[in-house]
């Protein structure tokens, strides 16, 4: 059973423009606060470890999603790590072509069981298994953001 009437003139087609007028202010959370403070103040990466599951979470978590235990064993990981996947983006966030393609990798920091996504620079022909190290912003410039790490590069 279809509609009894259809739009048959193009001039009758119309779309009404609008937006969702929202913006968001995120807190980092309990574990996130600790992770980003450590990165900002000391330039170090902190994971959290579940002894029962023998898993080091990065970014850290205050609970273990596998067994639900509360986690309070904080463990420094990295700063170096191993590339587990790598790709080069030719399009940006809005779908337009990037002037300079950007290489992105999933990196397993030494001592962590999870992977971190970040940019790769100054590293021609990087392959899975390559060793990389972070290039951090200088201390005064760091804000407690994942962008306090400028990028990773091949060791």
């Amino acid at each position: 059973m279809g509609s009894s009437e259809q739009i048959d003139r193009v001039t009758d087609l119309r779309a009404w423009p609008g937006e969702f007028p929202v913006s968001h202010l995120y807190t980092m959370g309990i574990a996130g606060e600790r992770f980003f403070r450590e990165l900002k103040d000391n330039g170090r990466f902190l994971g959290s470890r579940c002894a029962a599951c023998d898993h080091v979470y990065l970014p850290p978590s205050i609970f273990c999603p596998r067994c639900f235990a509360a986690l309070d064993e904080w463990k420094e990981v990295g700063p170096q790590g191993t590339v587990r996947a790598v790709t080069t983006a030719h399009r940006g966030v809005d779908g337009t072509t990037l002037k300079t393609p950007e290489t992105l990798a999933l990196i397993q920091l030494d001592g962590a069981d999870d992977l971190l996504t970040h940019r790769i620079k100054e590293s021609e022909g990087l392959e899975i298994g390559a060793r990389v190290a972070p290039v951090l912003k200088e201390t005064p410039e760091r804000e407690g953001s994942i962008l306090d790490v400028r990028y990773f590069r091949a060791v």
Partner: peptide
């Protein structure tokens, strides 16, 4: 505490359709 601000840009064009169009 550390925070992250993200001004979302969520723009749409809603088709008026047959009934509301008329």
């Amino acid at each position: 505490v550390l925070t992250l601000n993200w001004p979302a840009s969520l723009r749409y064009e809603w088709d008026t359709g047959v009934a509301i169009g008329r």
